[in-house]
Computed example of a mutant assay.
Amino acid sequence: MFTDSHCHLNFEELRSQLPAIRVAMAEARVDRALCICTTMEEFPEVHALALAHDNFWATAGVHPDNEGVEEPTLERLVDCARQTRVVAVGETGLDYYGMEDRKGGRSIADLEWQRTRFRTHIEAAQTVRKPLVIHTRSASDDTLAILREHGEDGREGQAGGVFHCFTESLDVAREALDMGFYISFSGIVTFKSAQALREVAAFVPEDRILIETDSPYLAPVPYRGKVNTPAYVPYVAQQLADVRGVPLEQIAQVTSRNFEQLFAGVTA
């Protein structure tokens, strides 16, 4: 019934609990999950999850905020993205959040390595004709500009993809939608402070909306602050149903259909 379009089941908080997580998913009617890669070093582990379970799929990519890891080349990303049950490139994008605190006082100009890495992912996605899973945080202008630079404007034959764990403004959502991208909402949409995000969730067209957990992070209310799992994605769906004034089953149906539409090969 429900599909978690973005989770990190190989992370330490969840790895040892996989059997229990799968039981909880079944009980919550969460039928499928996309396991997201954040470094090249972890790709074999993420890919193994997809190979071992017929309701998991994988991506290939390096998170924009990861430093001190293997830098992905175009050739390496293409090779990984062409593997069985790998349905997307990413997560990738730009993260300028907390420049002073988290990045040692570096300027945005100092983060050219992030922009170079993002461009490599876009080229890989276009090469293999698979969508991008995009992370953008405090960097939406540059994220959109680089996508446009590479022709990602919604035309036939472009990679397209999804802006995952969306927390940007309604104007950014409009631009992303105009460029052909999907918008995915996480447990953040259930937070008391997220009224502006709920307004975005009410605006996004039905055929472009996805739901996710980003587990083990960002557990929705009423589990906020706890370890998140794909079994909690129905709480995200319920919040979307509430703000859009539609039945929960409708959100489950359309987000699962959109998942299949975006990520070719996940209907099995």
Rank of each mutant, 00 (worst) to 15 (best):
207 D>C: 05
13 E>V: 04
144 L>R: 13
65 D>T: 13
143 T>G: 01
53 H>F: 14
34 L>N: 10
261 Q>I: 09
205 P>T: 13
220 P>H: 05
39 T>Q: 09
194 A>P: 04
10 N>P: 03
52 A>D: 15
261 Q>P: 00
266 V>T: 15
248 L>D: 07
19 P>G: 03
33 A>V: 13
224 R>L: 07
249 E>M: 07
26 A>E: 14
164 H>I: 06
100 E>M: 14
24 A>W: 04
137 R>G: 09
203 F>S: 11
134 I>C: 02
234 P>Y: 01
250 Q>A: 12
259 F>N: 05
68 G>Q: 08
15 R>D: 14
118 F>N: 05
79 D>K: 14
187 G>V: 01
50 A>T: 09
61 G>L: 10
168 E>N: 10
159 A>Y: 06
212 E>P: 04
118 F>V: 05
239 Q>I: 02
148 R>K: 13
44 P>G: 09
36 I>K: 01
94 L>E: 09
240 L>P: 02
73 T>K: 06
247 P>W: 02
174 R>A: 05
128 V>F: 02
263 F>S: 06
162 V>E: 00
4 D>C: 07
267 T>W: 10
262 L>E: 08
149 E>Q: 15
147 L>N: 07
98 G>K: 13
195 Q>T: 14
217 Y>P: 06
154 G>W: 08
105 G>P: 08
144 L>F: 12
260 E>N: 11
115 R>M: 10
